[in-house]
């Protein structure tokens, strides 16, 4: 399913894509019985908007030099990455249940030897800087390829993220878009370090910044469209997302960073997802 030219967005179709990604993630959770499902569900809308509308990419040619790059800095969101790679045709959907199992090609954290995965994620604070480098490389080649990188609010604790933010602005990387998943959680619970106001900070660092509801498909598509403006600045989209989005029981979990789903509750959670299918419509 090559997407080498953008067509006008069909918001309803993109919402359905996001629902399908969430379903795939729930299937993966059943295999392993645990994972970073809350973050995955939270970012599903963003990935649907990227892979089924915004990105110029071709699953038949994952190394196409002029492709747009998507970098998942938060390697532990792998469950969402594999879902969208399967939905887009990079990997087979029937491989998804091996997620996180011993010997699987779909490990709990993303590595760049999985087709369609651009960087080794997982060690947080590595994504934005590598995206800056890719942006410069594509610019040197006069490539139309653009670079999209997802980072999280927890990752804003890392000093390297801010080094990279300065570099992106210094070098005027206007083919670079950072999507900041502000879901309010990190390993020890709620985000505790004084990272707010995130949007103001990126603006102050020299980025063209937009803040949206990251689970609102129309807002996502509009923000991505705006990010294509050539203004000599890198672009930041601050996405306020709900961890567990689409499955209320997971949303309501007091500690959603790493979720265990028992066999008993799995079917009920999938039913919740089905019941809330139109919640964002």
């Amino acid at each position: 399913m090559p997407t080498t030219d953008r067509e006008p967005p069909n918001i309803d179709e993109l919402r359905d894509r996001a629902y399908q990604l969430r379903r795939m993630m729930m299937t993966m959770t059943r295999g392993k019985g645990e994972g970073y499902i809350a973050q995955g569900l939270g970012i599903a809308d963003c990935l649907a908007a990227l892979y089924f509308h915004e990105l110029r990419h071709d699953p038949e040619r994952p190394d196409w030099p002029e492709r747009d790059r998507f970098l998942l800095s938060t390697g532990h969101y792998s469950i969402a990455m594999y879902a969208v790679l399967a939905a887009a045709g990079y990997i087979e959907e029937d491989e998804l249940p091996t997620y996180g199992l011993n010997g699987s090609r779909l490990p709990m954290s993303t590595f760049d030897d999985t087709v369609g995965v651009e960087i080794v994620g997982g060690s947080l604070g590595h994504g934005l800087g590598q995206a800056v480098g890719m942006s410069l490389g594509l610019r040197l080649d006069d490539s139309p390829g653009r670079v999209y990188v997802e980072i999280s609010d927890g990752e804003l604790d890392e000093g390297s993220t801010w080094e990279a933010a300065m570099a992106g602005a210094t070098f005027g990387c206007d083919n670079l878009v950072v999507l900041i998943d502000c879901n309010g959680i990190q390993a020890d619970g709620p985000v505790t370090v004084a990272i707010e106001p995130v949007a103001d900070k990126f603006t102050a660092f020299g980025w063209s910044t937009t803040e949206i509801d990251g689970n609102d498909m129309s807002a996502l598509v509009e923000a991505l469209e705006k990010s294509r403006v050539s203004d000599g600045k890198p672009k930041a989209i601050v996405m306020r997302t709900t961890p567990g989005s689409g499955v209320p029981t997971i949303v309501d979990r007091p500690r959603a960073h790493f979720v265990r789903v028992t066999d008993d509750e799995w079917a009920g959670l999938v039913q919740e997802l089905e019941d809330n299918r139109d919640v964002h419509a």
Partner: peptide, 22 residues
């Protein structure tokens, strides 16, 4: 490219450039 006094940025930026064939 001079990334300033930022060695983490140095290595990340270099790695990103490398991943575009440099």
């Amino acid at each position: 490219f001079n990334v300033g006094m930022a060695e983490q940025s140095l290595v990340m930026t270099a790695a990103g450039l490398a991943k575009t064939g440099k």
